[in-house]
Simulated assay, not measured.
Amino acid sequence: MRRRYMDAMALVRRYGKPDIFLTMTCNPNWDEIRQELYPGQTPQDRPDLVVRVFRAKLEELKNKLLKKDILGKVRAYVYVVEFQKRGLPHAHFLLIMEGRYKLTCPEQYDRLISAELPNKKKNG
């Protein structure tokens, strides 16, 4: 853990402070998980399935962030995967953006951040 902290601090020293803190949380209601459960099973009964689906989606997110530049060009990054008390994985990213993609005013953050109330009919 100390080594990972030191690695992250070395990135900050070299590239500057992180611009974006991003969290990805596993959703046990993802179709890819629900479709593979046997009758009567819950996602908590299949941690192998939950982690595989999460890993696939995490890799896709990394690809979109780092190769497709969906938030802009990333200069440096670090991330960690943790497990919640319920057993579901989630990932935290720190992204250091290249100069022209740095966020400098509230309006730029507002374009990236959104919050939605879940649809009770769709999400139960």
Rank of each mutant, 00 (worst) to 15 (best):
H92G: 07
Q108L: 08
G99N: 01
L11Y: 10
D19T: 08
R55L: 02
K85Y: 10
N29G: 04
L11G: 08
K85W: 01
C105Q: 15
R14T: 11
R75V: 04
E82G: 04
G124A: 14
P39E: 14
V80T: 13
E98H: 06
D69A: 02
N119I: 10
P89E: 08
T23G: 06
P18D: 03
P106V: 12
D45T: 05
D45C: 07
F83S: 06
R111D: 15
T104V: 11
E107P: 08
K85T: 13
T23K: 02
Q41H: 02
Y38C: 02
K102Y: 03
N123Q: 08
L49D: 01
R52F: 10
C26D: 01
L11I: 08
R100M: 01
K67F: 07
Y77S: 03
K17S: 09
G124H: 08
P47M: 05
F54K: 06
I70K: 11
C105D: 15
V53Y: 06
I96V: 05
S114T: 15
P39R: 06
L37F: 07
M6H: 14
K102D: 12
E59S: 11
L71S: 06
V80S: 06
I20E: 09
Y109R: 14
G72S: 01
K121V: 13
S114V: 14
P28I: 06
E82L: 03
T104A: 11
G72D: 11
I33F: 04
Y15M: 07
Y38S: 08
V80R: 04
T104G: 00
T42I: 03
E116W: 15
P18S: 09
M24C: 00
C105G: 15
H90R: 10
K102L: 09
K57W: 12
P47V: 05
N27V: 03
A76Q: 00
Q44C: 11
E82M: 02
M1I: 08
Q35C: 12
V80H: 00
R13E: 14
T23N: 03
N119R: 11
Y5S: 08
A56R: 13
Y79A: 00
G87H: 06
D19C: 07
P47R: 07
L61Y: 10
R55N: 11
D7S: 12
L112S: 14
C105S: 15
A56E: 14
Q84D: 02
R100F: 05
L103F: 13
V74S: 07
P43A: 00
N119C: 13
I33V: 09
Y38P: 07
P28C: 02
D7H: 12
D110I: 14
V50R: 00
K17T: 06
P118I: 14
R55A: 04
K121R: 15
I96P: 10
L112D: 14
P28L: 12
R86L: 03
E60N: 13
Y109D: 14
L71T: 06
P106F: 11
M6N: 13
K120W: 15
A76L: 03
M9L: 12
L117Y: 15
Y79D: 03
N119F: 12
I33D: 10
G72W: 01
L103N: 05
V12A: 09
K64W: 08
P118F: 05
M1K: 11
T23H: 04
N119K: 13
A8K: 12
D110T: 15
T42C: 02
A10G: 03
E98I: 01
E59T: 06
G87A: 09
G72I: 09
N27D: 14
F54A: 00
D48W: 04
K73R: 13
G40K: 01
I33C: 07
I113R: 14
R75A: 05
